[in-house]
Amino acid sequence: MRLLIISGRSGSGKSTALNVLEDIGFTCIDNLPASLLPTLIRQVRSHGEKDENSYAVSIDARNDQDDLQEFPDFVVALRQQGLDCELLYFDADEGTLLKRFSETRRKHPLTDDQTDLRAAIDQESELLAPIASIADLTIDSSHLSLHQLRDLVKKRVAGRESPGMAVLLQSFGFKHGPANDCDLVFDVRCLPNPHWNQSLRALTGQDEAVAEFLSGHEDVRDMLDDIESYLQRWLPKFADDNRSYMTIGIGCTGGQHRSVFIAEQLHQRIEATFNNVQLRHRELRK
């Protein structure tokens, strides 16, 4: 049996994630009281469900506050029973959440006569902090369209069907916001910038001309070698610590040239060493 626990702030993508998981064969349960999770697991097991069955359960801030505080203990107990249990936490920055609720005219579950939308968003973050602190994978949907979010959930969750740690290399641009969902971040803004070459400005790090430009600089080659050396040495240690997911951010100024090139090159270099290495360019729109 495989169990995915989905949580996160309202408007960050939990419902979308559940829909995707249902489409790929998970049995999904929305807004389950946290205290009932151990009971649900016992009931499923008592019915003789086979190990290959997969379930996704959504836990949100409408739970009893004491249950949310004790939730990390629930998860530890489930894992001690040998359950394949992963926790995915969805979030977005406050501005994005405010915009989404304004555009959809949905009511936040914690708003009332005394609590406005902004206060409800802050309160929800506090209530869910114990869950967020133990998440195996955090997905920041601030920069994702609905289609991109669906694809990312499918890629990362489906990727975990194979044994071992799922690694995601993600390029991004600092000027578009930090990569809040990354476990490691490498800043490559010190490298020569193709943006200042007029013939390369409209291209990306996936284009051959940009790759030739960057490959011709010793600093770029040294940066690549050093990051690869770090990953080759330390990623196995993270995997040995029972990590299911690892997200590695490569950031430059705009997320178009240097970070894209470095992420592409690292993907080629380490995918033969590790079981499941994925690649995503946050700022490149397809």
Rank of each mutant, 00 (worst) to 15 (best):
D151Q: 15
K154G: 06
K155N: 13
K155E: 15
R156D: 14
A158C: 05
A158E: 13
G159R: 02
R160Q: 13
R160G: 10
E161T: 04
S162K: 15
A166G: 09
A166W: 12
V167R: 00
L169K: 05
S171M: 09
F172L: 03
F172Q: 02
G173W: 06
F174M: 04
H176S: 08
H176L: 08
A179C: 09
N180S: 13
N180Y: 07
D181Y: 12
D183A: 03
V185H: 02
V185C: 01
F186C: 01
D187I: 06
V188I: 09
L191T: 14
L191V: 13
L191W: 13
P192N: 15
P192K: 14
P194R: 06
W196D: 09
W196F: 09
N197V: 06
Q198D: 12
L200W: 01
L203N: 12
T204V: 04
T204S: 13
T204Q: 05
G205Q: 02
G205A: 00
Q206Y: 02
Q206V: 01
D207C: 01
A209E: 15
A209G: 03
A209L: 13
A209M: 11
F213T: 14
L214R: 00
S215E: 14
H217R: 13
H217Y: 15
E218A: 11
R221D: 07
R221N: 11
L224R: 15
L224G: 05
L224W: 01
D225A: 04
D226I: 01
E228N: 03
E228Y: 00
E228G: 01
S229T: 08
Y230V: 08
Q232N: 04
R233E: 10
W234G: 00
P236N: 11
P236G: 06
A239V: 11
D241L: 10
D241C: 05
D241M: 10
N242C: 08
N242R: 07
Y245W: 11
M246F: 13
T247A: 10
I248S: 05
I248G: 05
